[in-house]
Write a protein that binds this DNA or RNA. Structure first.
Lengths: 370, 370
DNA sequence: CTTCTTAAGCTCGGATGTGGAGCATATTCT
DNA sequence: AGAATATGCTCCACATCCGAGCTTAAGAAG
């Protein structure tokens, strides 16, 4: 049951710096109920009031609703192929602290231990204010919090070690979480249905419907890279043939250019896409065409308002927009061609997964605060 | 804001014949609040109580909560390529009356007029108890309720003429609505995420997530038949190439068999699929393989608990289960192969779209009843 | 500098819905 | 017939919320 108190906290979280009067109007309560609500939530150390920027117009000035200085916090974590990072995030999405470190040659369990130590350090500083954690990882997370990241050669890494305490624990795929971030704080704000796609080693993403990320029955939705939009003769590491991911990522570029599979396919792909030599440009164009064609298929099936591209997708969109768009339009159903959903670059870039981890953990936490 | 009253009505709708005590436990209220709730909703003529079947165990017997004999009703309508039908449906999904008629050679506007007349007749019988209408059509419905059904050669047929009054008005694609019905009353009951696919002339369907049908930004989601899983050299009537729908429906079978495109592709396909001659059986196997391969792609991307097949999909599943399943398994990501989501025939069959129209209209109505 | 206008916040009373304790009721079991 | 069990009802307390009327804090007008 959604109470007014939860609604108010959600509004403050979604629109940091909202004024008290605006927030009351947004949730549709009168001034009397607002007095009671703000007083109660302030007393519970969930929010505080600060002088608002002067509006310049007549009337009694209102205040800005801000996170309480002793209010709850979320630890947001991301692990990428290069580094790990932990942020302490308050209501509204602002970060109070950051710890980060390169992965180096560490194993998965060593990285989890390092992240756990960082979280423990932050807990000595912030104490029980940290009510939960959100973790973005470049792989799949099972129900029992075991991480598999084929890209990093990690198998069965136990994420539970990061956060032994009770509270909120959200862990998910980086592309899925980036989709959430893009919908709440990025290029897809306001979309009723948004599709976010993230190309790194392979391709992932998510559909966000009315602010809710569709995570699927096992939490494994969004593996759009394994839809058979690609070349049916190419075998994917997943075991299937024709996976779309194998047609758009670094491995695809290497195959098109006759190179060995690169050790770091993401940096490799960035170099290829940035190159203006004819051979790399042609490979980039081919990958961009495959990307556009697949996006069209997903748009036909899922009917989003817009599509956002993250990771290497952003690079491809910048380097070969014409190839993406031509293949996109050609693949759309007739009635969509007149006014196709726009394909936009992600605005959060590499911070997307971390921001999404914070977002999903905060969403979960908000339902538990009264 | 979801009130207890709405929750109770939803429980009664979802589980017709539920006992009062069970319903109270399901929504988590005590016996005191239950007395107040049932009294209030009974007084509002939304529900009534009937003697429940004896439980056989000790304790004071409870009653069954049933729709009120003067309670609200929904008119559920479906238009197929063969006939139209209007049911009057009460809370819980039971039909009180049915009117149906073959389409014959009527135009779209004539059919809409006939359906409108049937609804008007039912309104003289049931009066203002009929609070709204749900309509399932074999085509796409725009925001302003204009229907395009290329299969029937209907363009810009105005559905608003069926229901001139205020109230609930829900209109949608038959495959999308069948997905809703399958999730609420059919083979996908209890699934957290269900994918329903319906092959008729082309292929459509929907994802149902936690009981909510994902309708997309324009209400056009579920056009999975226009994802490019098919032969890239085949042009689809939609203007794109390689659409999956062109690889699995009656037009695909005719192409494989070297036949002209049939006038009624659904009856044609039923005949081909039912045939045991070698050529039709081979064509059926090819279509079944294309169906299984595409299902695998969708399962990889959308992560449903299970997949239900309606329309000709049911026939294909009965005629060539091995071909569907082999292609399905081959296309799944490795980690899914051990325990793949089952592919099940629809249990509602041809009644799916009508049942879904009733379901969606009732869902909409329930949010408006206090 | 005073008064007017405007927007916002506060106080209070009443309506509503909910939760729990204790009692009443209807059935099966012994 | 009495015990055991499950359910329903009455009553009271509490939290929430809405609206009316009043108060407060700013800019605008003179």
């Amino acid at each position: 049951m959604t109470t007014r108190a939860t609604e108010l906290l959600r509004v403050i979280h979604a629109r940091p710096g909202v004024t008290r009067a605006d927030a009351a109007r947004l949730i549709g309560v009168g001034t009397g109920a607002t007095t009671e609500l703000v007083g109660r939530l302030g007393h519970a150390e969930l929010l505080a009031e600060a002088p608002a920027a002067p509006s310049g117009s007549r009337g009694r000035p209102t205040t800005a609703l801000i996170p309480h200085p002793r209010g709850p916090l979320i630890a947001a974590t991301s692990i990428t192929h290069e580094q790990w990072r932990v942020d302490v995030v308050e209501l509204g999405g602002a970060a109070l602290a950051t710890i980060r470190e390169d992965l180096g040659d560490r194993t998965g369990d060593e990285v989890v231990a390092a992240v756990g130590a960082a979280v423990a350090r932050l807990r000595t500083e912030y104490g029980d204010r940290i009510r939960g954690i959100g973790i973005a990882v470049p792989g799949t997370v099972s129900r029992d919090l075991m991480l598999d990241a084929s890209n990093l050669n990690w198998r069965n890494v136990d994420l539970a070690a990061i956060w032994p305490k009770a509270g909120i624990f959200v862990a998910g795929n980086d592309a899925t979480l980036a989709a959430s971030a893009e919908s709440h704080r990025g290029a897809a704000v306001g979309a009723s249905v948004a599709l976010h796609l993230r190309v790194e080693a392979g391709l992932g993403g998510a559909v966000v419907d009315g602010g809710r990320v569709l995570v699927g029955a096992l939490g494994a939705a969004g593996e759009f890279g394994h839809m058979p939009f690609g070349d049916p003769t190419v075998e994917c590491p997943c075991g299937a043939y024709g996976c779309w991911g194998t047609a758009v990522d670094g491995s695809a570029l290497a195959r098109l250019l006759g190179h060995h599979q690169p050790r770091d396919p993401i940096s490799y792909a960035r170099r290829v896409i940035a190159s203006t030599d004819p051979a790399p440009a042609a490979a980039t164009a081919t990958a961009a065409t495959a990307l556009g064609r697949g996006i069209a298929g997903l748009v036909n099936g899922l009917d989003p308002d817009l599509v956002t591209l993250g990771g290497l997708g952003t690079d491809l969109l910048a380097a070969a927009p014409a190839h993406i768009n031509q293949a996109y339009r050609a693949g759309l159903m007739g009635f969509r061609r007149e006014n196709p959903p726009p394909i936009l670059p992600s605005t959060l870039g590499d911070d997307g997964p971390l921001a999404g981890a914070a977002e999903e953990a905060w969403t979960a936490l908000l339902t538990t605060l009264v």
